[in-house]
Design a protein around this nucleic acid. Structure first.
Lengths: 167, 167
DNA sequence: AGATTTACGTCAGGTTTGTTGACTTATATG
DNA sequence: CATATAAGTCAACAAACCTGACGTAAATCT
């Protein structure tokens, strides 16, 4: 057999390695969202509702604009989903404490209940993966994931226990 | 200050830890898809087209049914996207070598070109994250991601260099 | 006080991506 | 020959996005 040129060999491994990294993300995200999607479908909601419920639960008192920045959707898209959630009693809003133009969003008890139900699954999935992979692997996972995320949003993840509220 | 009950403290950390794991996935996926989406938009295509192009490029000669299983969409959804890609000259098909009912899909040169252009960005992103995080972290990333993926699809990732073709 | 900016909502019209269900065609296989 | 499989297609529909323009209330600047 002819020897492979080292350069070519190297390139091949590198490409394969990178593709694997891409695909891991694709499959993980696909499987990660499948079960909550199924629950939501029964309530005539979609993934967009989950995202809103999740982040309102995560940052109680979050403003609409902050939510827009996190989700990277238009006002219109968010509006449709958010007003449905408010109408159906999962989310409430009140004026901001100093700036009364703001809407500070919070989950109602029903919203908290739904959030728990939806995220339960994902939490369990992450817990199982963390447990199976071990603490060192979890460190590595975080480091790589942080590198994939745009620099602007990495700040949210500094400090293990302080949820960095977006500004 | 009152001491926190250890149990409560533990639960809090655990919940925070898991939420962080969930959010890493959300933000990474969001940022990962943003740039290809922008390129696709100029060609009047969407993310679905990218997925098809990506996996046809990944598994040349893949059958339609295999693609359906990977993407987890209905025949109808795939059909619309796939026939557009064929019509516009990015993908070709030929009958299977032994079973002539099959359509074995492949990228045309134009398809390969587009695939490269679209995935280039994601490859660069993964490469940068891998480089910044280090080899050990990459190992951990893979282990955790594999744990997040449904068992059925983990087999694709055995062996670093053999792309396990779906059956 | 008036002008400007900001936070948020809304109206109108459009696309993509996804769905279900029923039917067709060609080929393989028991 | 009967049945099963791979794939395509038709019709009708819904979810979740988008753009662009306009409106309202409140804060802030000059």
């Amino acid at each position: 057999m002819a020897d492979l040129k080292p350069g070519v060999q190297h390139l091949y491994l590198r490409d394969e390695e990178l593709r694997q990294g891409i695909e891991l993300l694709f499959y993980a995200y696909r499987d990660f969202t499948a079960e909550p999607d199924a629950i939501l479908a029964k309530l005539s909601m979609g993934r967009a509702h989950h995202r809103v419920i999740y982040f309102v639960g995560r940052y109680p008192g979050i403003r609409v604009g902050e939510l827009l920045a996190i989700l990277r959707v238009t006002k219109q898209s968010l509006s449709r989903v958010l007003s449905q959630l408010i109408r159906e009693g999962y989310v409430t809003h009140r004026p901001g404490p100093t700036d009364r133009r703001e809407r500070r969003l919070e989950l109602t008890p029903a919203g908290q209940e739904l959030e728990r139900k939806l995220t339960e699954n994902q939490r369990a999935r992450v817990a199982a993966a963390y447990r199976a992979a071990g603490a060192a692997a979890v460190e590595g996972y975080k480091r790589v994931m942080l590198g994939l995320i745009n620099e602007a949003d990495r700040a949210r993840f500094v400090g293990a226990t302080a949820p960095a509220r977006p500004r």
